[in-house]
Design a binder for these strands. Structure first.
Lengths: 387, 387
DNA sequence: GAATCTTTATAAAGCACCTTTCATAACCTC
DNA sequence: GAGGTTATGAAAGGTGCTTTATAAAGATTC
């Protein structure tokens, strides 16, 4: 046993500095000491000491004294030093690797990406190293300063142990120990997570409650975020692509799930072709199908409605069980816009008790990277503020 | 703001007494002071002071000195005084009200139940009062000592505000303010929760991870428990009875959900009748259908398989999204045993990636009451151990 | 321009709690 | 009964927070 429970009055110091640090973080812009006293409920000498400690350790920075408009002696003002603990995020995909560096406030200092030209894990690792190097240089951060690394990658990932268990889209990927490779360069914890989960984290940022964040493109996945924390369950939460629509005949396995094969971006195009009609015959991709539907093309509207119905039927059981506050759709199909969303909403109203809010993600790019940075930051803060 | 952050070294005392109390709780049976020192990592004088305080406040009780087998001076031994903060649980159903009293260790001190003979909320409240009185008397606990009250009731409940929003099975129930009525008698917090949710808590006790606890009888509901805490979502989590099976024609609403109408206990009997055959023609209830299936009756086996398939198809999407570690089935249909369970397991293996453990609940009776007591206890402990 | 008020910063005194250390007590085994 | 083991109790020392008092810097007022 002997958990070595923190002893002595030092714990108090820890708790109080954490409270002060959290108060500075939550405020925006420089904060006066007196404000911190009010925000934390601590006494002035306590806050003074905590701030002193935080200035020494680099987490806070002092601003020039500025005469207050209220009269009185100018106040000392401090703010978060974002560069105290920068974090590195990586989005490792089959064709591209993206790296990003963010500061403590969540500001993205640099983002770089590189294509993966050849197959093989050796090349992939080299690309990862190169992209990382570039991002760090652009952000003017040395590897030794990085406080946390988070990696997003497709496939099934054991988030707790940091292992890639199964990644059909990147051959050989599951066998290399990515964490060890990066821990050799960085003196900090390294986390790995499924890319759909990280995208969900990115989408969930700033939201409370329960969220189902759907990534809908060629593939179809989702992440479940409950009160800002990723829900992993037994390890494979959010795999909506493998939901089997009614009447689906399991064909031979190509790695994709039944629902992906039925209403993935590719399948939507195929459905439109089969439906025929003047505009749909020439539709090259899902976007054109949705555009036609938006223009009122009856055949396209019918296809969209069938797709929406299949989606609604697939997620309705989960809506009833999970009772999410919102479902947010991102990915290529999200660009369909209101046409698809309204149709889904209509069907969900029919299939659930009180349907959740249904939205499209407004995150433009780098969703997975943003999620990785968010996870890294979240862990850094959790670590720093833990009592 | 000014959250009035706890000040001074008094916080330390709070933290340390909480640590000691938790250590005593987690140990089973009387604990020596020296053991507590090891368990908490605190120093002896600190533990001594904390124990003194806890003895004074009644949370701990001292045992007679008992010569140790190791030699040396006999140690002072303390243990949890379960009666320091007894909790009251209530299961308010349409036909019966059950009350129970438990001590801090979770031991049920008394359980009483009374039928509800007449309709109307006045009578119902009178029954609640009478049952409560009896349970308290049997447990030898005065109302003033009760530290927490938790109530389980069917319908849709706002667990945070303690309001019954919608309860079709108990007319007029949603309008009365149960919490206020009970708070007049008890000087403590009063919580209300949906009965299926409480049953889920009872089933989840001692389990980690994510759990889907299904109540399957005439009605069909479920509770989601994640790491020992009830998942409420937007307020209606676990409503699997309203999942719509493929091909289901929405008939006029009788308050029950589509899945309940399809594979509830009543529907199973009807299915068996329709299937015909020597044994099924006379089947009076679902239990006889399962008995026939267990005996190998082909028609009964077919019915069970269809029921299992419908259930598996209904929950499979949620399994993929939620990734529960286990699904536990309780309620009347749970008595079907292995016949049903094996069939469900077979279908789930086909419909999910890695199927969760599938089990029957071994909680015999008073599941809702047990859950209510568990929720009350959980809150009491959380309150007492909060730093 | 000096006095006064307001706001903030700094320092010292006092209190609470934990930790260390030493002495004492009770009991067992040999 | 001697020696070892385990537990108790009291005093001294350290750290951190709170209270109180004093000083500094600027705005306002007369």
């Amino acid at each position: 046993m002997a958990e070595r429970h923190p002893q002595g009055t030092r714990v108090l110091r820890r708790i109080n500095t954490a409270a002060v640090l959290a108060a500075v973080r939550d405020a925006d812009g420089p904060v006066r000491l007196t404000e911190l006293v009010e925000l934390t409920g601590l006494t002035r000498p306590t806050v003074t000491q905590a701030v002193e400690e935080l200035l020494d350790s680099g987490w806070l920075q002092q601003h020039a004294a500025e005469p207050s408009s209220l009269g009185g002696r100018p106040a000392v003002r401090v703010s978060l030093n974002g560069r105290a603990a920068p974090v590195l995020g990586l989005d490792v995909g089959p064709h591209t690797v993206t790296a990003g560096v963010a500061d403590l406030a969540g500001e993205q200092l640099a983002v770089t990406r590189k294509p993966v030209r050849r197959k093989g894990t050796t090349h992939l690792l080299a690309v990862i190293d190169a992209v990382t190097e570039e991002a760090l240089a652009a952000a003017d951060v040395t590897a030794g300063r990085v406080a946390m690394v988070a990696i997003g990658t497709p496939g099934i990932v054991d988030g707790e142990k940091g292992r890639v268990l199964f990644a059909p889209s990147i051959p050989g990927w599951s066998s290399i120990d990515l964490v060890d490779h990066l821990r050799a360069r960085f003196r900090c914890a390294v986390g790995v997570e499924n890319d759909a989960n990280l995208a969900a984290l990115a989408v969930a940022h700033g939201r409370d409650g329960t969220l189902l964040a759907v990534q809908w493109g060629e593939r179809l996945g989702a992440g479940v975020v409950i009160d800002g924390r990723l829900h992993r369950g037994a390890g494979e939460a959010g795999e909506i692509g493998f939901i089997r629509p009614p009447g689906h005949n399991p064909r031979d396995d190509d790695g994709r799930g039944p629902l992906e094969r039925t209403i993935g971006a590719e399948a939507i195009t195929a459905l439109a072709r089969a439906a025929g009609g003047a505009r749909l015959d020439t539709a090259a991709d899902a976007a054109e199908v949705f555009a036609a539907a938006a223009d009122g093309d009856p055949a396209a509207l019918d296809v969209v409605d069938r797709v929406a119905r299949t989606f609604a039927e697939a997620v309705a059981p989960s809506v009833l069980v999970l009772s999410p506050h919102a479902i947010v759709i991102s990915g290529g199909v999200a660009r369909a816009g209101a046409v698809l969303l309204d149709a889904i909403r209509r069907h969900l109203e029919d299939l659930t008790l009180t349907p959740p809010a249904l939205e499209l993600s407004d995150l433009a790019e780098h969703t997975v990277l943003t999620g990785a940075l968010r996870m890294a930051l979240d862990r850094v803060w959790r670590q720093r503020l833990a009592t």
